[in-house]
Design a protein around this nucleic acid. Structure first.
Lengths: 111, 111
DNA sequence: TAAATACTGAAGTATTCACTTGACAATTAA
DNA sequence: TTAATTGTCAAGTGAATACTTCAGTATTTA
């Protein structure tokens, strides 16, 4: 019952595909069945199902099957993990810029 | 002389590789030559150079060759583009959550 | 000048990836 | 019950990816 830890590798890979980002965009509007998602994409239902699997293990989408229809909706967990990753790395990167500024200041003092 | 537009596809793809993220982490500490980057990675210099090309066209790294040494440093542009993408999509996604809340509220009113 | 250093380029390989086809199961509608 | 809908599974294909090796080219250093 333990949720698998979010793999940032998988997350970036999932978001790196335009079709998957299109799926996410549509799901931001409203939850949708697999075939409703497939309709405007110009690829087979099977392909969409495969994309959905990737989005699901990346915690970007949650799906649930009722009767013969699988309903897909946005799952916040993945987005949150991504935001956290960027926030963390931005601080490291800003620190580097600060240090670069210090180095430049020191350089100025030297002459 | 026009900088190519940031391709969010390329950006996610670039960040989807653990070796490339390791390179970025090291460059956050300080600028570095290609061979300095390669040393702890356990892959050939050629492979590192290939990764650097990908990071460079994604605007995550800037490199400059002086003499025989190519120095690599973090380039903010790519990170900024990524942050903007996430900020934009978070608002869409939050709107969806709001609407879901409204729908639930309406549902409550109905009985 | 000769040797070591720091990369660059072309070509090859094994794996992964997005996608397809085709056969099938399960559910709902006529 | 028959037919249509909705999705799943297994296997295959062609392109992209992350590497490799090997043979260079500049640039320093001894």
């Amino acid at each position: 019952m333990k949720a698998p830890p979010i793999d940032i590798d998988r997350l970036f890979h999932a978001l790196g595909d335009p079709t998957r980002r299109a799926i996410l965009d549509r799901l931001c509007e409203r939850p949708m069945s697999v075939s409703a998602l497939a309709a405007p994409l110009g690829i087979t239902l099977t392909a969409v199902a495969q994309h959905l699997q990737i989005l699901e293990i990346s915690a970007l989408v949650h799906t649930e099957k009722l009767g013969r229809v699988r309903t897909c909706r946005i799952e916040p967990t993945g987005f949150t993990a991504l935001e956290r990753w960027i926030r963390d790395h931005r601080t490291v990167w800003e620190r580097r810029l600060d240090r670069l500024g210090e180095l430049l200041a020191e350089g100025d003092e030297q002459h």
